[in-house]
């Protein structure tokens, strides 16, 4: 005889099928802000990749007959002090900004996550040492440290990305460490330890996947911060070097022609704003979508 109470489903079958990742995706899709952010990011990525196909102009070719022309049908965003089309430079500038955002956060993740895992999981002296170095780095204001590093490494886009990446690292060390401290006392980690898994396996297979949501949210928000930092370093002449286009360096030259050619300052700034806004929207959306307390 079969006990019907035991065979009857306790919860709705749909809820059993839905994985946490699927649930997060469903919640994310429902958020208009995050979807708008994703659409804008996709647009900027497409523009950055296909820039050479989308425009007849060269981003670095100067034209002395088109110096500081106001926006027109010929040059939608106008031209700069060297007669270069601003729209084209904004389009090509997206490459430097997006690359800087993603690569510097990639550097920060590559260094920060293993260090945070080691600090949180091993504890003791390793934790104390890593935590104090992290505190020391966090004590130096982000942009000041990035400027100092970029200055000592030498001005270039590559070095700016390294400087931003290193400066962003302590955020990921601290976040990973905190998350590991919470997760490592969970029963499934205890169980993994009890069956004799080695420490590296527990850290990588059982702990890391469970802290990924928090890292994903922080990474998205950090890309936004890194894009602003790259623009700031390029604005100061420590990032992308002229004549290669970058939104930050475009703003730097625009500053000198604010009276006669204000359009030179409007477009690159708006491009930075929209890109950063998009990543912030997606980051906020992800945070809400991945929050188990949210419905």
């Amino acid at each position: 005889m079969v006990d019907t109470a035991l065979t009857a489903p306790l919860v709705d079958s749909d809820e059993i099928v839905e994985t946490p990742a699927r649930r997060a995706l469903r919640r994310l899709i429902r958020r208009k802000g995050a979807m708008l952010g994703l659409a804008l990011i996709a647009l900027f990525v497409a523009v950055a990749i296909f820039a050479p196909l989308l425009t007849p102009y060269d981003p670095v070719a100067q034209s002395w007959t088109s110096v500081r022309k106001a926006p027109s049908m010929l040059h939608w965003f106008g031209t700069d002090d060297l007669g270069r089309d601003i729209l084209v430079r904004v389009m090509f500038g997206a490459r430097a900004s997006l690359m800087a955002g993603v690569i510097s956060v990639g550097i920060a993740l590559t260094i920060g996550v293993p260090l945070g895992l080691a600090a949180g999981y091993l504890g003791g002296f390793t934790d104390a040492l890593i935590s104090r170095i992290t505190d020391a780095m966090l004590a130096c204001p982000f942009l000041i440290l990035a400027i100092a590093l970029a200055a000592f490494l030498g001005p270039s886009l590559g070095n700016a990305m390294i400087a931003i990446g290193i400066t962003t690292t302590p955020i990921f060390v601290r976040l990973t460490r905190g998350q590991v401290m919470t997760v490592k006392v969970e029963e499934y980690v205890e169980a993994a330890r009890a069956v004799g898994n080695p420490r590296w396996r527990i850290a990588l297979v059982h702990i890391l996947p469970n802290i990924l949501p928090a890292l994903l949210v922080q990474a998205t928000l950090s890309v936004a911060a890194a894009i602003i930092a790259e623009a700031a370093l390029s604005f100061l002449g420590l990032g992308q070097q002229p004549p290669a286009p970058s939104w930050g360096s475009m703003l730097n030259s625009a500053q000198r022609f604010l009276v006669n050619a204000p359009w030179m300052a409007v477009w690159p700034g708006l491009a930075i704003f929209l890109t950063v806004l998009s990543f912030n929207l997606v980051g906020d959306g992800l945070r809400d979508a991945l929050d188990p307390r949210e419905n």
Binding site: A224, I228, A231, A232, F235, L251, A254, Q255, L258, V259, P262, A265, V266, P268, G269, I272, F273, V276, L277, N280, L281, D284
Partner: peptide, 22 residues
């Protein structure tokens, strides 16, 4: 809040100079 977090302050500075000074 989103505007404040996403606006690069050097751009905001330039725009304010344009409006209030120029």
């Amino acid at each position: 809040a989103l505007w404040g977090i996403s606006t690069p302050n050097f751009w905001l500075g330039i725009m304010l100079i344009f409006l209030f000074a120029v």
